[in-house]
């Protein structure tokens, strides 16, 4: 009796084990699929063009510095790499746009949500519903009218285009929506009452009492806002398309390199792509724990 029980228990455990191993194998295959393209670009960035022609995929090479020289050379390929891919300018521009956008998005979304949660006023219901309703309206749909309007305001094709790239970040409906949920569930209004009794002004209450409480929620949203803005090609290409190369963002520079026919040095091209993804991958590896947790919290799928 006990024996047969042990036997079936063993069989059961064995079947669990088999399942577990099958799943592990599938996951390992998927991991390889996810990482392989990245391995190809990083390894080929360290290899010489001729090497890559002979063998498309291989181990790391020793020609990284040669490729670095190529993309910095004013003479090779008529200086096209150097003129089109201005690495430091690109990082700087992307950082300025993504950085300010992130700060604006998080701060003003928090402020809007705070206003909607803490205060009672006429039209509050309408304002909340409006934000929920416009969450799904994508940039692509309004971009014709947006671009034409920006041309009228002379905000296309120069440094002034940065205004049109950064300011709209103040109105981020999906972030407001997320903050609303967060505040409603974890912000006791009594704190505001207490602050008022102590003679704290409304804005000071928001800045010094509410903001620190929202820090965790802000952090998650800030990461996503930054990555989204850094990766954005559509709006910057629209507004900075006619601008000088040193004002363009990293995705725009990468696009101009990969679509250029004449640049036939694959090692240097792989290096350009590697350099463009490097910062974002470093950020991801450092913050992956928060990012993976945060995906389901406030992400509206793009």
């Amino acid at each position: 009796m006990a024996d047969s029980y042990n036997q079936s228990n063993k069989a059961y455990r064995r079947s669990l084990m088999t399942h577990s191993i099958i799943r592990l194998i599938v996951c390992i295959i998927l991991t390889i699929i996810c990482l392989f393209p990245l391995y190809v670009i990083v390894s080929n960035a360290t290899r010489d063009h001729q090497d890559i022609l002979k063998q498309g995929i291989s181990f790391f090479g020793t020609d990284l510095f040669k490729n670095i020289e190529t993309i910095n050379s004013p003479t090779k390929f008529a200086g096209l790499f150097k003129n089109q891919f201005l690495l430091w300018d690109g990082y700087r521009n992307s950082l300025i746009i993504a950085g300010f956008s992130t700060i604006f998005t998080v701060f003003f979304s928090g402020m809007t949500a705070y206003g909607l949660v803490v205060y009672d006023f006429k039209g509050k219901g309408f304002a909340t519903n409006f934000i929920l309703a416009v969450m799904m309206v994508p940039m692509q749909v309004v971009s014709t009218g947006f671009l034409q309007f920006m041309y009228q305001l002379h905000l296309v094709g120069g440094v002034q285009a940065y205004i049109a790239l950064i300011l709209p970040a103040i109105a981020a409906p999906s972030v407001v929506f997320y903050m609303l949920q967060y505040m409603r569930s974890s912000f006791p209004l009594e704190i505001v009452e207490a602050a008022r009794i102590d003679g704290c002004g409304e804005f000071r209450t928001f800045l010094q009492i509410a903001l620190p409480i929202f820090k965790p929620a802000f952090a998650v949203q800030a990461i996503f806002a930054f990555v989204t803005s850094w990766n954005n090609y559509y709006t910057p290409a629209m507004l900075l398309g006619p601008a000088d190369n040193n004002l363009k963002t990293i995705p725009m520079m990468v696009q101009s390199i990969i679509s250029a026919d004449k640049l036939s040095d694959n090692g240097a091209k792989y290096l350009v792509i590697t350099l463009s993804v490097l910062p974002i991958i470093v950020i991801y590896l450092i913050l992956s724990k928060f990012i993976v947790k945060g995906v389901a919290l406030g992400a509206v799928k793009g």
Binding site: P37, L38, N231, Y233, V254, Q255, K269
Partner: peptide
């Protein structure tokens, strides 16, 4: 990962 770079990776 930046979509422009992804397009680049797969084009290569």
């Amino acid at each position: 990962i930046t979509a422009a770079s992804v397009a680049g990776i797969f084009l290569m």
